[in-house]
């Protein structure tokens, strides 16, 4: 049973369930259209099946300036097959025929702006998306965006960063719904060996200013990272590590066999992360 409010999105419901079970959530990012949209469809179902709690579906962009090389290359592959935002939204509709996994559209502002905020929000909501996260949009520039997305019952997720002051974290949380996405380190996306030492302090600062679930991303790839986050965060976002699996499996060709291999690799990854999430310290165990 979900403890979320009646008009809550799938995202809020899922986080409410996770809180109830005291389990860390896994948010899985992949770039839509990498290497093709039908492949992404398969990948999303595989990720959901393996236990991913939220899917972040990346909208490819020509100039992904917040992304490291792995996701840059994914964007390039997706654009090579001319993946558009409209097609990514259509993909969500297709996924909804067989899955209720919460889906966040994740990308840069320009493609959304060119589609038009109203058209984007109504199409995304109709297709069954649950929220959006725009990397290069902050609360300051987002009044119209938030109003329009909220009118379509879409969650607006914003980024908090290690450089954000407490005051800004509060502002970002106030603009966010669904969850708050906390960037673990200054830098671009990409897998790293260790989590930064100052992450717990950042999480504590964020906790003080919001009741929203907090997902931590950037540099998270290993089960060990996930275990550490149990009790500190509500979810871990894993992106580049998954995108790398897709890249490895489809490097030679994107034959059905290669796509299946990539889907299995993604599932294995997420299962191991989920395992760590279940066996790591739970929030309730360490809650003060």
């Amino acid at each position: 049973m979900s403890a979320a409010a009646p008009n809550a999105t799938r995202i809020a419901e899922r986080f409410a369930d996770l809180r109830e079970s005291g389990e860390l959530g896994i948010v899985a990012y992949i770039t839509a259209g990498d290497p093709t949209l039908p492949a992404t469809h398969k990948f999303v179902l595989a990720l959901a099946d393996a236990g991913a709690d939220v899917i972040e579906l990346g909208i490819p962009f020509s100039d992904p300036l917040a992304d490291g090389p792995t996701i840059q290359r994914a964007s390039e592959r997706a654009l090579k097959t001319h993946t558009t935002l409209a097609q990514v939204i259509d993909l969500v509709r297709e996924i909804r025929k067989s899955s209720e996994v919460p889906i966040v559209l994740f990308g840069y502002y320009n493609p959304v702006l060119q589609m038009g905020l109203e058209r984007f929000a109504s199409a995304a909501a109709n297709a069954g998306a649950d929220g959006a996260l725009i990397t290069d949009l902050t609360p300051e520039e987002s009044d119209d965006y938030r109003q329009i997305l909220a009118a379509h019952n879409l969650d607006t997720i914003f980024l908090g960063a290690p450089t954000s002051t407490d005051e800004r974290l509060a502002k970002i949380a106030a603009a966010s719904s669904g969850f708050l996405y906390l960037i673990s380190r200054t830098g671009v996306t990409g897998a790293k060996d260790a989590l930064p030492d100052d992450l717990p302090a950042l999480l504590r600062r964020a906790r003080k200013v919001t009741q929203l679930p907090i997902a931590v991303g950037f540099g998270i790839s290993l089960p060990g990272h996930v275990s550490v986050l149990g009790g500190l965060a509500d979810a871990a976002v894993v992106g580049s590590a998954l995108v790398s699996e897709i890249e490895k499996a489809t490097m030679q060709d994107s034959s059905p066999a290669a796509i299946d291999a990539a889907a299995s690799a993604l599932a294995i990854r997420v299962r191991s992360l989920k395992e760590a999430a279940r066996h790591g310290l739970s929030r309730r165990e360490v809650a003060p």
Binding site: A66, T135, T138, E140, L159, A161, T163, S164, T165, I183
Partner: peptide
């Protein structure tokens, strides 16, 4: 104009 950047750059 405006300020369309990832959050990490806002305070800087």
């Amino acid at each position: 104009g405006g300020r369309y950047v990832p959050e990490t750059l806002m305070v800087p």
